[in-house]
Structures are given as structure tokens and as C-alpha cells.
Design a binder for these strands. Structure first.
Lengths: 193, 193
DNA sequence: TATGATTGCGTGTACTCGCTTGCATACAGT
DNA sequence: ACTGTATGCAAGCGAGTACACGCAATCATA
């Protein structure tokens, strides 16, 4: 990948993150990348081709591979906190907004599988973790798929809400949220005084 | 609101839900509404005006007012389940997709306050519920804001993920998810066998 | 010094965008 | 029968869209 093409891809993805695919014009891209507009079409087939090249790059994919979750202690509290931390570290507001910017009918069919990989990786890693925990005798047999979905949903939910509304919805910070919610997941809400 | 204007608004909001604001053209709207294109501009100032009229209508707002959450039993399990059920009943995939379709720089500043009202209403209702539960001696003093955010995030997360990926991410059904996750919230994950 | 590849620049094409205008028609209430 | 209002229809506006082409300049390598 030559430098010019990379600059074009970077500009394209940044603009899509900020304005969405349809509102991102080739003129915009050229200007942001600091190249002439016709250069885009010398390097790529068309606008769509730039985006598809972008989503295939590690740089523009949240590189959330299952290997990230191998460093576990086989203790619920530190492990769940680590899972959530790693997710929020990779899935930045920028990535969330990019994912939404890619939701245009013209490209979504091709980009959706890429976008879906992240939640899929997280979910399956979490399920696998729980199953291993059961085998190690540390967890009883439960509906792990549902449990994993609950934890993932709350992780994803917080990430998305933060990206969308920043601090306008809630001032709870990331670290506090992770700590408190993991405590809730493990101990439950303590009833009575 | 005359019939023609309503048809125009309905068509506009449906198209935005499906394709986003920028990709929705006035030609599209006219065709979908079954009116002539110039009629749009006789009824409304411009394209943006149609959308803003739409988001102000109850019909196109998730009518999730705090009153919905007044029918509580002051018992954690049935109440939390009710909260989640009511949310998912109102926040359909259609509404989620519409909210995303409204995320265009050209209109977002004006539509965001509307979109934000729903999570705000849910969150504050939940916090208020917890505080009342404390006063009734059924809950100890906790960080209710954080707890509410955890429960809301998992509710929102599930709703959003279902709207985005349908059953491709997880086959867990709504009813099962609510039941299981509320159980987790209340009892925690049972450790050991 | 010569050559081939890369890029900028200007111009252009075919099309779509939001939006406007002039005019004909249909239908309501008076 | 008269009049005002709502709508359709056809045409068109200027601006912007993705994309194309020819030509000159640059630059590394031979």
C-alpha cells in the first residue's frame, strides 16, 4: 500500500466517521487527503472501493481478536473487568461512529460482515471463557450464551451511549462503570439494608 | 395536521429509518407519499423542516414517558422485568434505526435533544425507583446512578444489537434475555458448583 | 541524460440534488 | 355560479455529484 493510497483511505474513513458515507464526497476526500480528486480514481475503482479497502485494513478495524482475551486469571472479578477494559480500549467512540457511518444502503451489505466481527469475537470469547470456568469447577452450569449476552450488552451499551451522548447522559466514568457493574454481575444487587 | 402533510411526514421518517437522512431524497419522499414533489415545498419550508416536524410528533417519538413506570410493585424482580419490557416494547428496531438515520450533521444538532429524551427518561425513572426502594427499606444505599446505568446499558445494548444484527449475533429471545439478566442483576453469577 | 511512473491541474460529462415557477384542474364553501 | 384553496404536472434553476481525459510537471532510476 503506497503512501498516497493510504492517505486517501485514512481521509475517507475519518470523513465517514464524522459525516457518514453518503455525505462524504470525493471532493472532500481529496481535499482532506491533500491529493487531487482524480488521483482517487487512479488508485481506486470508485468511492465504494476506497471504503472497502479501508474496512479491510487492521488500522480501521477494531483489532479485537480472541487472543486478546487469553490473559485470564480464572477468577470472575478480575477477568470480567479485563474483558470490559479491553473492549472499551479497542472500541473507541471513533470506531463506534465509523461503524454507524458505514451503515449506508449502498455499502452496508459488504461492510456489515466486517462490523459484525467485533461483537461476535467478544461474545464467543466470553462464552468460551465461561465454559472453561465450568470445566475448572469454578462455575455451575448456566445459560452461558445468555449470560455472555447480558455482559456484552451492558459493555456495548455503555460504549455506544458514551460515543453518542458523551457525558450529557451520565457522568459515570469508564473505570467506575466497569468496577461497579462487574460487582453487580458477580454479587447481584444486595437486597434489604 | 392535514392528511397530505401527514403522508409526507410518514414517508420521510420511514425513508430516513431505512436509508438515513442524506440518502433520502425529496423525489423519494414524494414518490413514497404519493404526492407531487413540489407539494412537499408547499407544505414545508424545506426537507429539514419535514424531519423536524416529524420528530415532534408523538407518532414518531418513542412515547416513553416516566408515567409508564409508575405501575411498580416495589419488588426488584418483577419491577426490573417490567422496566425492561416497557422499554423494549416502545423502542422497536424501527425506532432504533430511525434514531440512527437522524444522525446526520445537517440535522443532528436539532434532532439529538429529541433522541436523547428516551434514554434520559428511562435512566432517571430507574434512579428514582431505586431511591424510593431505599426509602422503603428494601435496598441499602448504593451508587444508584451507576447501577441504573448498568441496567439501562444492557437493556439498550440488547435492543440495539437486535435491531442491527437481528438474530445473526445471538438467538436469545427478548423474554428469555429479560428474565435471565434480571436474575443475574439480582442474584449475581453463582460462583462454584 | 533519457525513461517511465506518479501526480497535479483544468476542463468536462452525465446525472442528481433541493427547490422554484407557471399553469391547469379539481373541489370545497358561499 | 363564483371564488379560494389544494394539488398535479412539466419544466427548469443553480449547485453539486461521481467520475473521465488530456497534458504538464515532478522525480527516481537506469
Amino acid at each position: 500500500m503506497d503512501e498516497t493510497s493510504q492517505k486517501i483511505i485514512d481521509a475517507t474513513m475519518s470523513l465517514i466517521r464524522d459525516k457518514g458515507y453518503v455525505a462524504t464526497t470525493t471532493k472532500d476526500i481529496a481535499k482532506t487527503a491533500g491529493v487531487n480528486e482524480c488521483t482517487l480514481f487512479r488508485k481506486f475503482k470508485n468511492k465504494k472501493d476506497i471504503v472497502l479497502s479501508g474496512v479491510e485494513q487492521e488500522k480501521w478495524r477494531a483489532n479485537l481478536t480472541p487472543e486478546i482475551f487469553t490473559n485470564v486469571k480464572w477468577e470472575l472479578q478480575p477477568d470480567l473487568e479485563m474483558f470490559m477494559e479491553k473492549y472499551m480500549e479497542k472500541i473507541t467512540p471513533e470506531f463506534v461512529n465509523l461503524s454507524i457511518g458505514l451503515r449506508a444502503p449502498q455499502i452496508y451489505e459488504e461492510t456489515a460482515p466486517m462490523v459484525m466481527k467485533v461483537p461476535q469475537a467478544f461474545l464467543s470469547s466470553l462464552i468460551q471463557y465461561f465454559e472453561e470456568m465450568e470445566q475448572r469447577g469454578k462455575l455451575p452450569h448456566l445459560d452461558f450464551e445468555c449470560l455472555a449476552l447480558t455482559i456484552f450488552s451492558s459493555t456495548f451499551g455503555y460504549t455506544f451511549l458514551s460515543a453518542s451522548f458523551d457525558k450529557k447522559l451520565s457522568g459515570i466514568r469508564k473505570e467506575q462503570y466497569i468496577k461497579q457493574s462487574v460487582e453487580t454481575f458477580i454479587q447481584g444487587i444486595p437486597e434489604r439494608k
